[in-house]
Amino acid sequence: MAEEEVLLFSTWASIYGRRVEMALKLKGIKYKYIEEDLTNKSPSLLKYNPVHKKIPVLVHNGKPVAESLVILEYIDETWKNHPILPKHPYERANTRFWAKFIDEKCWPAILKACWGEDQKEREKAAEELSKLLQFLENELKGKRFFGGETIGLLDIAANAIGYWLGVFEEAAGVSELLTREKFPKLFNWANEFVSVSAIKENLPPRDKHVAYMRKRFGMVNASK
């Protein structure tokens, strides 16, 4: 049987691309990584994702799959070892719900809390984010990971909180939004999550990432 060809088009600082790399690493899938310059997108990227023209794109034996959460499900359904989605239909649906919650609710709140147009908008977003994080705190229910004893799709999606949030706080110079005092379960989860080798190996270098975000968005609170 011929060896499968797996390509990943992404950029080093993409939260969505890093999700895909985490899933590939957890499952031990060999792949070729293609770094994209989003200011000068390659013909291959435009060919494989003509609708959105965005990364990440996974190409499996010539067939492209776009959108990070869709790619994660495709990976899980194609390579059965180390499942990242639960078996039970209800639990699978619940996982999809919370992953969407992170992308559609938490992520915009994180961006506004760190890089809102003014102090008032940032404070309002921080309050909103605190309420959203409480939902995730409750969802952990004393589990080691959202996926139970092993990392699952929801843990990978929640990397937005487990790693990216801390980088954004430092880069923007805002107060810590995820604290042990307010969210002990979520705080402990984040520390354990980023310590797992398959995750740790697929996180951007923190200093480089902070510098990149400062350059991209600028310091909104330089007085801190």
Rank of each mutant, 00 (worst) to 15 (best):
T150P: 01
E21Q: 15
A157C: 15
H82W: 00
E128H: 05
W12G: 01
W189Y: 07
A172S: 15
K30Q: 10
Q134S: 14
A160W: 01
L165F: 11
I55S: 05
E127L: 07
E192F: 01
G152K: 02
V196S: 07
N61V: 14
E4H: 15
M219Q: 14
P64L: 11
E104W: 08
S14D: 01
H209Q: 02
L140G: 09
D155Q: 04
E139H: 10
E36D: 07
A125P: 04
S197E: 15
E181A: 14
C114I: 07
Y31Q: 12
R214P: 03
G166Y: 05
V196T: 12
K185C: 12
T78E: 03
K124L: 12
G148D: 08
A2D: 15
W98S: 06
Y212P: 01
T179C: 06
A113G: 09
N40V: 01
W115Y: 15
R122T: 00
L72D: 02
K182Y: 00
R19P: 00
M1T: 14
S42M: 07
E192R: 10
S175N: 14
E170W: 08
W79A: 08
D37E: 11
A171M: 11
N138H: 12
A157N: 09
I110Q: 11
W115S: 06
L45T: 06
E35A: 11
L26A: 11
P50D: 04
Y74R: 05
K124H: 07
I199L: 11
Y90K: 05
V220L: 09
A126T: 05
F145S: 10
E127K: 10
L140Y: 00
A222W: 05
A126P: 12
E104S: 07
N221R: 14
I161H: 03
V20M: 09
K53D: 09
S223L: 11
W12N: 02
R144F: 07
E4M: 14
E170Y: 06
A99H: 00
E77W: 02
H88R: 05
N40G: 11
G162L: 02
Q119M: 10
A113T: 06
S195M: 04
L26Q: 10
D76L: 04
W79T: 12
K215N: 15
M219N: 12
K87C: 00
A2I: 13
G62W: 00
G147C: 08
V6I: 15
F135R: 11
E176Q: 15
K41A: 13
W164K: 00
E5I: 13
I71G: 04
G116S: 13
